[in-house]
């Protein structure tokens, strides 16, 4: 692992890791017995994608997908204001955070990266999706959004008389979401919740599927995650952007290879400078590895946060304490 770090131009990963840990502590820490950080009322309105799954005890906020599902199916019948506020918050968050959420804050992303690390440590090669499979997964993603969101809306409109379906159609995605299984089980293991034998079987099954796939395929869930999908749909309007200077690109394909999500627009697109979108979660891995000075950059609106750099042989954090890491 240490060897790998030596080849990077930029080092974004450690910072990202810190932010991720902080976010986990902030968002769901208290359900694992840590002091509560985020229980202030204001946070109750901030819905982040599986930020705090509804199935987390004492969760300060809730997953926005839960809100979307719940809000639409029931919202129109009772209180339109709730739906409006919810929508406004969701849209605002999409614009402000965009997919930064995915690889910098989402606790679930961290879990998946953990699986990836484990696989790398064991020296097992990753599975690479074929182009067709990638397209298929993308379709699955949008189908899920379609089924859960667009079908919830008519149900929520009481005038259509479908309100009787409300109970059967409540939270359809939550039932299969692996996050549910994950949080339920870990909470019970850490003792935040008493053991119960009423573990939902579907959630467990999907958790197993998820773990296995995330082990072999990096960020497996992110590929079909409807929350990410929603953000990607509006991705062009959000402020964080992955940009590329096509003139500097040598088409070395490093970016497409290192990308955990096989997002190859960043390699292929030579016309537009905005190369994010679709599958990209703004993890910055391609920026770290791109060997051309200033070719790729992560921007927030008009500001450049970081950009790619020529790789230098340098000592890694551990290597600094050893002798003879570099040879100059």
């Amino acid at each position: 692992m240490e060897l790998m770090e030596m080849f990077k131009g930029r080092n974004i990963r450690p910072w990202r890791f810190l932010v991720q840990i902080g976010a986990v502590l902030f968002i769901i820490g208290q359900s694992y017995g840590l002091p509560p950080f985020g229980t202030y009322p204001i946070f109750r309105r901030i819905f982040l994608p599986n930020a705090s799954c509804r199935y987390i005890n004492d969760a300060p906020t809730s997953c926005y997908y839960y809100q979307v599902q719940d809000g639409f199916t029931t919202g129109f019948a009772t209180n339109y204001v709730d739906v409006a506020i919810m929508l406004a918050v969701v849209v605002l968050l999409i614009i402000l955070l965009g997919r930064f959420w995915c690889s910098w804050l989402c606790p679930f992303g961290l879990v998946q990266e953990g699986f990836e690390k484990l696989r790398e440590l064991l020296g097992i090669p990753r599975y690479r999706l074929k182009w067709k499979q990638r397209i298929l997964l993308r379709r699955v993603k949008y189908t899920i959004i379609f089924l859960t969101v667009l079908i919830s809306i008519p149900i929520g409109i009481s005038a259509l008389g479908l309100t009787s379906c409300q109970s059967t159609f409540a939270l359809p995605f939550c039932q299969v979401c692996p996050a549910k299984g994950f949080f339920l089980i870990t909470q019970q293991i850490f003792g935040a919740e008493p053991w119960s034998n009423k573990l939902p079987l579907i959630a467990i099954a999907s958790l197993v599927v998820f773990s296995v796939s995330a082990f072999f395929l990096p960020m497996a869930f992110c590929r079909i995650c409807p929350m990410g999908g929603l953000m990607a749909l509006f991705g062009r309007t959000s402020l964080p952007l992955l940009k590329k200077d096509p003139d500097k690109c040598t088409k070395c394909r490093i970016c497409a290879r290192v990308c955990p999500l096989d997002h190859d627009r960043v390699y292929e697109d030579m016309e537009k400078d905005d190369v994010g979108g679709e599958d990209c979660t703004l993890c910055g891995k391609c920026v770290e590895y791109c060997p051309e000075e200033g070719c790729l950059s992560i921007n927030y609106g008009p500001f450049t946060l970081t950009s790619s750099k020529r790789p230098r042989t340098r000592n890694t954090f551990l290597g600094r304490f050893r002798k003879g890491g570099g040879d100059t």
Partner: peptide, 13 residues
Amino acid sequence: SDPVMLDGITRKG
């Protein structure tokens, strides 16, 4: 002109 960039220390990678 170009460095080798590895994305994983597996033989295949």
